[in-house]
């Protein structure tokens, strides 16, 4: 093993990147929901929710996750705080 290879010890190899990318792509593949369609769904959700409650549009998070064999669509929707509402109005 060369000196430079020894220096690499402790850094994450490209296999780590490969695994992360695979996990993301497989979650989308399995759900049949591409990243683009997930984004479109997010916009629709925000529009619908906004008719009922004031939400912080820029901070909405919508993601696909996997727990064991169960795929989940997880939404984190922060409501607009009174303070921020006062700021924006």
């Amino acid at each position: 093993m060369s000196f430079f290879e020894r220096l690499r010890i402790g850094r994450r190899g490209t296999a780590y990147t490969a695994k992360q990318r695979l996990q993301t792509v497989l979650v989308h593949d399995r759900s049949g929901l591409s990243p683009g369609r997930l984004e479109a769904l997010k916009v629709d959700m925000i529009d619908t929710l906004s008719r009922h409650v004031e939400i912080d549009r820029g901070s909405v998070q919508l993601s696909l996750t996997k727990e064991r064999n169960q795929q989940r669509l997880v939404a984190d929707i922060p409501l607009a705080s009174r303070r921020s509402r006062r700021r924006t109005t």
Partner: peptide, 13 residues
Amino acid sequence: RGDMLATEDILDV
């Protein structure tokens, strides 16, 4: 070296 997916990684995925 960490530059190829290990068997466990693939089974995990």
